[in-house]
């Protein structure tokens, strides 16, 4: 069995399973263990409050509209995330891979220029956001090693992916796939879990505010 076959077969299955199993396990621990307490008689709707915060926090807080950092985080953040999601789910090689290994995605892949462009947005966002961690005293203080590893690993995965764009070399393809697998294994144990926790975080806050008849 060549290394590539290994990466496409057993190692892929193993890393994908670790990802699914531990992400689910982490979410279950987060959502179903520990202290829960009775809540006060509501003054407003916790449900609507949750909905409002889950949606509302997609936009920066109105008080920060004149704040350069908020603009930076918002623009770079969306640039990175949207770029990443588009290339993850709509780029031809990924669509092909997902169809082969996971599900038959119902959509057609985007043209190549769209793939490249979304990768460029993703890179521009990721690079600026990551470098800021070193030069903004606030963010440097609060950044954990995990935040750097998560950013770095994601960057390397993307970089090897774009290096394999020529699709002429099994080695580059294998390198990319191998790093993806590493990334998948790291994911559930890291701050990358914010991919899944954000609606709960916002939702709990929103429900609390909704119950109290206020907004958050």
């Amino acid at each position: 069995m060549t290394l590539l076959e290994l990466l496409e077969g057993p190692l892929w299955i193993a890393s994908a399973s670790i990802f699914v199993a531990f992400a689910a396990f982490r979410l279950i621990v987060i959502l179903f263990t520990g202290r829960r307490e009775a809540e006060a008689r509501p003054a407003g709707s916790p449900f609507l409050g949750a909905l409002r915060t889950i949606l509302g926090h997609f936009l920066p807080w109105r008080r920060l509209l004149g704040n350069g950092k908020a603009w930076f985080v918002t623009i770079a953040g969306y640039s990175f995330h949207i770029g990443l999601f588009v290339l993850l789910l709509f780029a031809a090689p990924h669509v092909e891979f997902i169809r082969e290994k996971i599900v038959n995605l119902p959509w057609d892949p985007i043209p190549r220029w769209g793939f490249i462009l979304s990768a460029q947005f993703a890179f521009a966002g990721l690079i600026t956001l990551w470098l800021r961690r070193f030069v903004d005293p606030v963010v440097r203080l609060i950044s954990r090693p995990d935040d750097h590893v998560a950013a770095g690993l994601t960057f390397i995965v993307m970089l090897t992916g774009c290096m394999a764009l020529g699709e002429q070399s099994a080695f580059l393809r294998g390198l990319h796939l191998g790093l993806v697998e590493l990334w998948l294994i790291y994911f559930p144990f890291s701050s990358l879990m914010h991919t899944f926790t954000w609606p709960f975080s916002r939702g709990f806050t929103g429900a609390m505010a909704g119950r109290r008849g206020t907004r958050a």
Binding site: L31, F32, T33, G34, E37, K69, V139, T197
Partner: peptide
């Protein structure tokens, strides 16, 4: 530990270290 629960845990596992909270706090 006594205070960990779904709510606090969701919050603590969601922080992305963006630092925007500082921009709201009067002490900062």
């Amino acid at each position: 530990i006594a205070e960990f629960g779904p709510r606090a845990q969701s919050w603590m596992n969601a922080c992305v270290r963006c630092g925007l909270c500082a921009e709201a706090c009067h002490f900062y």
